[in-house]
Amino acid sequence: MRFRSSLQVPPVSYAATLPDASTATGRIPGNKAMWVGIFCEVTEFALMFAVYFIARAHHPEVFRAGPERLSLLAGTGYTLMLLTSGWCVARALHAMRAGRQKACLRWLLGAFVFGLGYPVIKLFEVRWNLANGLDGDAGVFIVTYYYLTFNHLIHVFWGLLGMIWVMLRTGTGSYSADEHSGLEAFACYWHATDIIWLMIFPLFYVLR
């Protein structure tokens, strides 16, 4: 019995497999300041989503017909670009934790290229929209859509600037396997921006 119990491996939770998950109370991924920023971002978008739901409740037919007016291809393109960029950032963080700085920089470069795909698609989509008469006078659905998506675009721009910064820091050897909280804080912001897009996409491009 004693022999058997000595062979038993204690159960390891998913949380425990990640770094710094040593306490039951959990940790602050990245740093506190970034989470203040993320919660400000979340609050801002929560208010804008409230406006969306109220407008939708008052104009259900307009919102039901709305997605047909937008390019589903562009919407799917944004989603795939941001998801792939987020995946590259997560891989970069894992590479840094493993002490592989060069691999981390390569993953960050990949994240930047895919992240840049978002404003590039936006440029083409806006031109397509305007050519199809979808401007600021095109009704409540389009106005809500521009308001939310342009606001999200600003957050993506901040993220891309942040990504340039963490790439420079990684390239100059400022992060190490032991200390890379700046990189982790950026990753949190980028994933939070990703999460908000994952909500915007179905609201405007899918839901009828």
Binding site: Y14, L18, R27, P29, V89, A90, D194, I195
Partner: peptide, 13 residues
């Protein structure tokens, strides 16, 4: 995204 990318399972409550 929350669980795998943002690693929320390890974050504070």
């Amino acid at each position: 995204v929350c669980d795998r990318f943002l690693e929320l399972p390890t974050a504070r409550r």
